[in-house]
Design a protein around this nucleic acid. Structure first.
Lengths: 200, 200, 200, 200
DNA sequence: GATGAATGAGGGTTCATTCAT
DNA sequence: TATGAATGAACCCTCATTCAT
């Protein structure tokens, strides 16, 4: 039992180290040895926990996807009307990336990896499909609640998700951009702007 | 003279081939020989036009940046009020990526490359800074024209740019998403939603 | 400890293999893979001990330079008058190259390498400067001892060193030349010929 | 006829250029394009005069060998007793290398090349065999003339040649060494030192 | 003949992965 | 289990040589 815990902890330690190095240098420029050095273990030890270098990226993706899934569940099960819950979703996503910037920064590697061998086991598009789905649900709820302005449909979900992810992207590419401060204007544009009667 | 033209054409042919292969396999998984084969030339011939494999990516970036620059200039010099020109900008960017999907698809490689050696000569963040700058200018114009709703400031520019790029991102990651059909809802959310009096 | 010894032994084994192949084929015609094959290891293993192909040549030079240095020290600290010690020096150098013909045979590569990148870390001229310096010292001793014929000065040191190295050169270029048998006539010409009263 | 002269002149111009570049960078580090650039012609033009890059080295060798042959003939047909002619030979060789230092400086490449493919057509050992042969002849003449001290035989020829070539070697490796000033001491040691009755 | 663009074999080096200790 | 030395496939880039113009 203790063994198992240790083993799990060791795997997690290595994964965290990998995420740090991937965030710093990019996946393509990161050698297994870099990850091992960051984790303070030998190169061979990485292979005790992960099948391959690609598996590290897949594991990082899984962690990211799990967080996204949690945020999505929270939005689905949250309190408030559709737009309130949409606003909360926006803030949750922004909080999530701001809380673990290094995990977020490897998103570019996940996006880039999907055409390649590393992609095995990584369904990146599914994450965005989920985001769009929950957003569409919340908009539908708002519609049903009569608080959505006319003409807003499922296609707007992609725009709302795009605004969030596009802001994250700009921040990844340019860390000087204050991502935390963007939650409010995103909500302003994508939630309040869609409210019947308009923003303010 | 003819020589020069041929030489330029050859370089361009190789660059286009490179973009196609990068779009298909990703930069990391593309060998110089793949590019040569796609272009129908020998491996060594690639090096007659480009200093290195990385130089191909940089050249692709330059082409993308030039297109972005053109779109930005168009927005700056265009006719109409601030919001009309912002709407035109949104549509131009979407048209641009839809017109050359392969060039757009290497964006993920450009994003991923910025932390690495390939980055020399690629100022990816500058492209987004420019996008935000021109968007902010157009919003300021709209403000001056009295057609902007209250409370919209420079920080909203990042959201507008984010909505565009975030939609592009979703389409890159999931080509099934009909990017061309997203121009309208982006404009609806990011332009009409910011108009004084709100979207119809 | 055992590890360190093994590691040193392995490096030495590869270096010896490299010297053999360089002697046989010449440095220019030797690929890293040839060295690895001769040493019975994989190509990549060479790089565990040496930074580059050039580093193999530099290491060989260092071994040669160390042997030369030892011979020079021996001449400086030896017993006998100046000319006896000069004679001993001649015989030592000849013995040295005859004892390890393969190390000697790469001298041509060292000479040829000095103008190139490989040269980093190889001060070939210094070896000959040292030879001339010690020879000049021994001649000066002989002079002080009154056993040197008149008119012999520092410039003769280059001739004595030249006679030795020139014989080695002829032997390298034409292994049929019996280098061991040349020690006596070199001494006859360069030591006895400089003795006051002349050679018998 | 004029054509032929031009063609020969062109070949010679390229060969001279090659010798200059080989002397400067070494053969191994010299690309055909370097030679072409030095000669002021296009890369392909080199192949109109020479079959291959190696052929340039062979041609340089032939020029060197021809000069050596001339010096040897001169010594054989010269006036004076055996030792006078040996002294003249020494001075001729030194003058030869001093007159065309660049041609001399490629000697190291010739020495190094003999184990490799380039060697085809280059009988470097033969040059030294010839040198030894003529030296031995001159010593035999001196012996017959009764001006040679006792105990000097054919094996001493290698020493005399060695002294000359060894001095040239030291100068090639270290151009600071004044080769022209070494002719006198070489003669002093290798000619006067062998004279019956000894050097003054 | 003269050119230099095009070719593609060759080889130095890296690094993911394995496995004996 | 942990290690890191060993492996060898992969790949970038160079450059000798060719040949169409």
């Amino acid at each position: 039992m203790a063994k198992k815990v240790d083993s799990v902890a060791r795997r997690d330690m290595i994964l965290r180290a990998a995420v740090r190095v991937f965030a710093r240098q990019g996946f393509a420029a990161t050698r297994v040895e870099d990850v091992a050095a960051e984790a303070g273990v030998a190169k061979g030890s990485v292979y005790l926990c992960f099948d391959s270098r690609d598996a590290l990226l897949v594991a990082a993706f899984e962690e990211y996807a799990a967080q996204a899934q949690a945020v999505i569940q929270e939005a689905r099960s949250g309190a408030g009307d559709g737009l309130e819950r949409l606003g909360a979703l926006v803030r949750s996503v922004v909080d999530m990336v701001a809380a673990e910037p290094e995990l977020a920064r490897i998103l570019v590697d996940l996006w880039a990896a999907r055409r390649q061998g590393e992609a095995a086991g990584m369904d990146v598009p599914a994450v965005y499909r989920e985001y769009r789905a929950v957003t569409a649900e919340l908009l539908a709820d708002a519609e049903a609640e009569g608080i959505l302005r006319a003409g807003v449909g499922e296609v707007h979900a992609a725009v709302v998700v795009g605004a969030i992810e596009g802001c994250v992207l700009q921040w990844i590419v340019d860390p000087a951009l204050p991502i935390a401060e963007l939650a409010a204007p995103i909500v302003d544009v994508c939630v309040e702007g869609l409210r019947r009667g308009g923003a303010a």
